[in-house]
Simulated scan of single mutants.
Amino acid sequence: MTWTDTMHQAIERLAMAPGLRSAAERAYWRRFSNNVEANLFHGVFDSAADAVASAPPSRPLGYDNADSANLAYLSRIYPTDYAALFWLANSLAGGMRSVFDLGGHVGIKYYAFRRAIAYPPELKWMVCDVPAVVTRGRELARERDGERCLHFTDEYSHASGFDVLYASGSLQYLPLTLAELITGLPVRPRRLVVNLTPIHPSRSFYTLNSIGTAFCPYRVQSRDDFLDGVIGCGYEKRDEWENTGKTMRIPFHEGYDVDHYSGYCFDLRA
């Protein structure tokens, strides 16, 4: 547990004292509503619609806006990337040649990982994101992607027929679960590499996420719900890992925190 997590829990315990909780909740709501730089969470909900209905009017909803499209995510490799990077490198070494990067923003991992992986010249890496992000990604690719391996789409259905579906830090923002998305594909990817996903030991729910530029409904699945859904689509689990140091804290909702995010590799059964 990090020092920040320890302080968060100490403050929340103090706020539970009689007469202090309501004041603490109001103070946090003001911080959440006016946030411009932190990654914050508020509330527990049964649906994305309920989470959206709770959003303050101070920011737009979702990533499909210019400010969110221009967020300065760094194209670097983080410690939480290495397990997923291993399985992507393994995929390319095994002859797979196409990657569908679900929620890959402007191609940040495509640019980061080419420093560690020798991309084959015939590689096709397609990022799927919202229209505002896709527009920005194409603009940057004209300057940065001399190999012309990077492509963009805003349609989930374009994942059909790709060798690898890669999703890092994105499944929680989608209107569909991974299992629902795969079910709609005529040709399912041979491999799924999932990283930085909030998986709760026992609960499935939504919360509201402030990313500084917008408010987003944020899905959290229980481990059983997530695995049962993907395995039920015809996949077997090859690997599972913890993204230690990456946590989710929802103030004033005991039992809903996520102590570490999760990653998985699945292969389509023959």
Rank of each mutant, 00 (worst) to 15 (best):
251 P>Y: 09
16 M>C: 08
45 F>C: 06
214 A>D: 10
203 R>N: 07
152 F>W: 02
47 S>Y: 04
25 E>M: 12
175 P>W: 06
93 A>L: 14
50 D>C: 05
46 D>S: 15
77 I>R: 12
1 M>C: 11
257 D>I: 10
93 A>Q: 15
155 E>H: 12
177 T>G: 09
21 R>I: 02
126 M>D: 02
186 P>L: 05
158 H>A: 15
147 E>W: 11
249 R>Y: 14
200 H>A: 08
116 A>D: 08
87 W>D: 10
198 P>S: 05
220 V>M: 05
251 P>R: 13
91 S>H: 10
183 T>V: 11
269 R>P: 01
11 I>M: 14
97 R>W: 03
81 D>C: 09
259 D>W: 13
153 T>G: 07
97 R>N: 11
107 G>A: 07
261 Y>D: 10
105 H>V: 07
76 R>S: 14
199 I>M: 03
90 N>M: 09
146 G>E: 13
248 M>F: 09
117 I>E: 03
100 F>R: 03
14 L>M: 08
29 W>S: 13
39 N>R: 14
181 L>C: 11
54 S>I: 00
72 A>W: 02
110 Y>I: 02
21 R>L: 12
208 L>N: 06
157 S>A: 15
8 H>N: 13
17 A>T: 13
4 T>K: 12
219 R>V: 02
91 S>E: 11
220 V>K: 01
131 P>S: 01
4 T>L: 08
221 Q>S: 05
82 Y>H: 15
34 N>M: 13
143 E>Q: 15
126 M>R: 15
201 P>S: 08
153 T>H: 03
246 K>P: 00
58 S>D: 12
189 P>T: 06
5 D>S: 14
106 V>A: 04
186 P>S: 12
3 W>E: 14
12 E>H: 07
1 M>D: 12
6 T>I: 11
194 V>T: 06
164 V>T: 03
82 Y>W: 14
255 G>V: 04
37 E>T: 15
24 A>Q: 01
29 W>E: 14
10 A>H: 00
33 S>V: 02
147 E>V: 10
124 K>P: 00
221 Q>H: 01
28 Y>F: 15
249 R>W: 13
121 P>S: 12
207 T>F: 04
228 D>N: 10
130 V>H: 00
118 A>C: 07
227 L>Q: 05
145 D>T: 05
268 L>R: 14
65 N>I: 01
74 L>Y: 08
236 E>W: 00
190 R>C: 09
218 Y>N: 11
19 G>D: 10
169 G>P: 10
79 P>R: 06
105 H>Q: 09
157 S>P: 00
146 G>P: 04
3 W>P: 06
201 P>W: 05
120 P>N: 06
90 N>A: 14
163 D>F: 02
193 V>P: 07
243 N>Y: 03
226 F>K: 02
245 G>A: 09
212 G>L: 04
9 Q>C: 07
263 G>L: 10
53 A>D: 12
5 D>W: 11
181 L>W: 08
257 D>C: 11
194 V>C: 08
23 A>Y: 08
222 S>R: 07
188 R>F: 01
133 V>I: 08
157 S>G: 09
67 D>H: 01
4 T>S: 05
251 P>N: 10
64 D>M: 01
210 S>F: 09
96 M>D: 13
